[in-house]
Simulated assay, not measured.
Amino acid sequence: MEVKTDVLVIGAGPAGSIAAREASKNGVKTLIIDKKSEIGTPKRCAEGILKSTLDELEIKPDKRWITKEITGIEIVAPNNKKLILDQNNFELPDTGYILERKVFDKHLVMDAIRYGSKVMVKTKANQIERIDDGFLVYANNLGKEIKIFTKIIIAADGPESKIGRKAGLKSNTMLDNMASCIQYEMVNVEMDESEHVKIHIGTICPGGYIWIFPKGDDIANVGLGVLKSHTDKTAKYHLDSFVQTNRYVSNAQCIEMNVGGDPIGGLLDDRYADNIMIIGDAAGFVDPLTGDGIRTAMLSGKYAGIVASKSIKMKDYSRNILKEYYDLTEEKIGKSFNKFNKIKEFLLTLDDQSLNNIIEEILKTDFNRINLTTLFKIIIKSSPKSIFKLGKLF
């Protein structure tokens, strides 16, 4: 079987679906393929999202995929002192939701379909070949070999992305920049406040942090990400150790386990070429500081879809035209990622005692009067040697 399309989106995660939506919205013939038989599974995400992200991406909230509204965050120091930020003591710039990604991802694909996109599940792209005006993609669809002719590929095939490399781009993530992540969805979790997310910091999770994201009164995602450069133990070892000793989850049971890599090294420079753009996790659109990737992945998809539609209408699919995608993502995302990377590297130098001191000093301060200067003073007071490390950030 042969299929022809203007834009082929490989991967039906949030980035790919938003890219397809934007291309279809502008009247471009768009096809999404995904190797899985069910879109949205397995989930590889803590499932948190800010309300402003939905506004930014023009996604209307729907109770079908919102499991919990979040009103605050608790940062837990190594000594278990809590820094609680919620509307009671701090003017939060935004609040958020915990999603059910298995439903949310389908919702985004459905939106793309409503704008005209076509979708093929259980379809894996095996090989790609350059042709005169685009690519010929050899794929397997439900056990049958098919050929897909496309002018533009938008690669949204996740952190293990192969499509970019098959097209000749240097799009692999260095192992040192790949966090090893594991998450349990657990039931019978005890919570003081079921509308707060909890973040545990320190050597309890080397090179990362532990999260507890509530999905119900006694249901939560409990997970972590570690850097192999900071531990010789597995991510599962560290999570199991936490679960066994933390009073909120020690009696809880796991009903789903998800594992995977999280690219936290920043954006790949080589993320576009003639007839191709790489988006989402495949191109490193993951916040280096928090490990959150859903917002920036969807934004990368939005920009790629818009640029693809312009390219098709101009009948010019060269890198000169697609460079607009690179420029947009560099300006809107890349610059902030560069700063976050430096902050991440600084935070990784702090030991548990320094983190305890910083949290305790912040707790003595009026939260609403904390600004960047105040925070620097707190850090230096709590850990005087940090002044040399902070200097490298600027």
Rank of each mutant, 00 (worst) to 15 (best):
I204Q: 06
N141H: 12
E160Q: 08
E69W: 09
S161L: 15
L54H: 06
G260H: 03
I378N: 04
K236L: 15
A167M: 11
F149D: 00
T374C: 11
K385S: 08
H107D: 10
S229V: 00
S382W: 08
G158S: 06
I75K: 08
I131H: 00
P78F: 06
D34E: 10
K313S: 15
L390S: 02
N126M: 11
V187F: 11
M174W: 05
L372C: 06
E74F: 02
F388D: 07
G223E: 07
E185S: 07
D217E: 12
P214E: 05
E2G: 06
I33W: 12
K323L: 04
V28R: 14
K35L: 04
R319E: 13
I201S: 02
T365C: 08
G164F: 02
C254I: 14
S382R: 02
F242A: 01
C254W: 15
D287R: 11
K51W: 10
V9N: 09
K51T: 09
H196M: 12
N140F: 15
D132C: 01
L363F: 04
F394Q: 05
I219Y: 05
M120D: 10
V7A: 04
H107G: 06
D133V: 00
L136G: 05
R247T: 04
E69T: 06
V187D: 00
E256R: 13
Y184T: 08
T53Y: 01
V109G: 03
A308W: 02
N126Y: 07
S300P: 09
I199T: 03
G13D: 06
L57K: 00
I75W: 05
L31F: 09
Y138S: 06
N320L: 14
I219C: 05
S229M: 06
G305H: 10
D157Y: 01
R271M: 14
I306N: 00
I73F: 05
L347M: 11
I264E: 03
S161V: 15
F104K: 06
K63H: 10
K68N: 15
V226F: 02
Y303L: 03
S171T: 12
I278G: 04
M120S: 09
D217S: 11
S386Y: 03
P14T: 00
E38D: 14
V7F: 02
P159D: 07
E129H: 09
L8W: 00
G280A: 02
D176H: 12
S250D: 11
G260E: 09
Q244I: 06
K313P: 12
G260N: 08
K332T: 15
R369H: 07
D111K: 11
P93G: 01
K162D: 14
I306R: 01
N356H: 06
L57Q: 04
P288V: 02
S354I: 10
R247A: 04
E330M: 08
L372Q: 13
Y184D: 14
T67Y: 13
G301C: 03
M186E: 03
E324R: 07
N26R: 11
M314K: 10
